[in-house]
C-alpha cells in the first residue's frame, strides 16, 4: 500500500487532500468562490471581460415566475435549463426541440410543461445547489457543438476542461458524453475523458470510468489523435479567467460552438482529479514547475506560450 502511494507521488499524482490542503485552500481565497459558484455571476464577469458565453435567455428567481415559463419559452425552440449554483452537472436539462406542448430532451425523451415546471421548482428550492440553499434557474442558449466532435459524441455537448494554475493552463481534457452518462459531460456519470496535449491540442489517452479506451463506445469512432480546433484561442480564454476570478487554482469549462466559436460554460474552484487519469499523468510536477520557474510571467499571451512550450516536457 505504502509502496503504491510512493509510486503515485513519484509520478506526481495529486490526491484530494493534497488539492484541498495545498492548492484550493491556499490559492483560492474564499471570498472569490461566489464568482464561480453562481453561474450567473460567472457569465456577467465573462461578458464584461469580452469572453463569449452562451447567450442568457432568462432567469427564474421566484416560484411565482414558474407559471409564466411556458409563455416565456414560446420564443425558443431549443434551450438549456440549469441551476445557477448546481454542482457536478446535476439538474441540467437540455431541450432540443418541441412537439406540440411537449419538450424533447437531448436523450429523445419527451417531458410535459408540468414536469419542466416541477424541475424548475426543485432548482429554486436548492435541490441541486451546494449546501441546499435557495437557487435560481437559468435558461440559456443551447450550444450546437463544432462538427469536429460529430463522430465522437452521443447526445449532449462535449466540452473542454482546462485546469489553470496561477493563470497558466496546466492540463486539459475533452469530455465526451455517452449513452451511459445520458448526454452529460461529467466523468462520474460515465462520460469519456480524453487527455489533451497542452502544446498541440491533440487528444491523447481516453478513459471511461477507470478503463483506458481508444474509441467511443456508442459511435465506435476513435477518440485519440484528434486535433482540437482553435486550441490557442481556447488556452487564451482559460488563462484569462485567472484575472477574472482571482482564483489561483481553477477549472474552466469551454464548449466549441459551430457558429459562435469557443464559449465559456462555467468555472470551478474545486476541479476534480479525474483529469489526471484521462491524461495518464499527475498534476504535481507541472504545478511545481510553474511555482519554481514562471510565477513572474505577466501577460496572458506569455503564460500560454510558456505552458505550450514548456509543460509538455514536464511529466
Amino acid at each position: 500500500m505504502f509502496g503504491l502511494a510512493k509510486k503515485l507521488s513519484g509520478i506526481g499524482i495529486m490526491g484530494i487532500n493534497k488539492r484541498n490542503c495545498d492548492y484550493t485552500l491556499v490559492y483560492n481565497p474564499r471570498k472569490y468562490y461566489p464568482l464561480v459558484d453562481d453561474k450567473l455571476r460567472t457569465k456577467q464577469l465573462a461578458i464584461d471581460a469580452g469572453i463569449a458565453v452562451p447567450e442568457l435567455y432568462g432567469v427564474i428567481e421566484i416560484e411565482h415566475q414558474i407559471r409564466e415559463l411556458p409563455e416565456f419559452l414560446k420564443k425558443y425552440s431549443d434551450f438549456v435549463l440549469k441551476p445557477a449554483q448546481g454542482t457536478g452537472g446535476d439538474g441540467i436539462e437540455i431541450i432540443v426541440g418541441k412537439v406540440k406542448s411537449l419538450y424533447r430532451k437531448s436523450n429523445g425523451h419527451l417531458v410535459t410543461e408540468e414536469q419542466l415546471q416541477h424541475h424548475v421548482s426543485n432548482i429554486l428550492n436548492g435541490l441541486f445547489s451546494l449546501g441546499g440553499h435557495v437557487d435560481k434557474a437559468i435558461i440559456e442558449y443551447r450550444v450546437k457543438f463544432d462538427p469536429v466532435f460529430d463522430a465522437i459524441s452521443y447526445q449532449g455537448v462535449p466540452d473542454i476542461r482546462i485546469i489553470v494554475f496561477m493563470g497558466f493552463p496546466v492540463m486539459a481534457m475533452l469530455r465526451l458524453p455517452t449513452q451511459m452518462s445520458s448526454g452529460k459531460a461529467n466523468l462520474h456519470k460515465g462520460a469519456i475523458g480524453v487527455g489533451i496535449d497542452i502544446a498541440t491540442g491533440r487528444t491523447l489517452n481516453a478513459v471511461l470510468k477507470n478503463d483506458v479506451i481508444t474509441e467511443h463506445p456508442d459511435t465506435r469512432n476513435p477518440v485519440t489523435g484528434l486535433e482540437i480546433p482553435k486550441w490557442e484561442e481556447l488556452l487564451m480564454i482559460a488563462a484569462k479567467c485567472y484575472e477574472l476570478t482571482s482564483l489561483g487554482y481553477l477549472g474552466v469549462d469551454i464548449v466549441l460552438d459551430r457558429v459562435k466559436g469557443p464559449l465559456v460554460l462555467e468555472m470551478n474552484a474545486r476541479p476534480g482529479l479525474n483529469i489526471q487519469i484521462a491524461n495518464h499523468m499527475g498534476f504535481l510536477h507541472r504545478l511545481e514547475f510553474i511555482q519554481a520557474n514562471a510565477i513572474r510571467l505577466g501577460s496572458v499571451f506569455d503564460r500560454v506560450a510558456f505552458s505550450r512550450k514548456m509543460l509538455s516536457r514536464v511529466h
Partner: peptide
C-alpha cells in the same frame, strides 16, 4: 493539514502506476 493520499484514492489511481 494532512495532504497525503487517501487509502481508497490509491486504489482509484492505481491504473496510472502500472504504466
Amino acid at each position: 493539514r494532512y495532504s497525503g493520499y487517501r487509502l481508497l484514492e490509491i486504489h482509484r489511481f492505481k491504473a496510472l502506476v502500472s504504466k
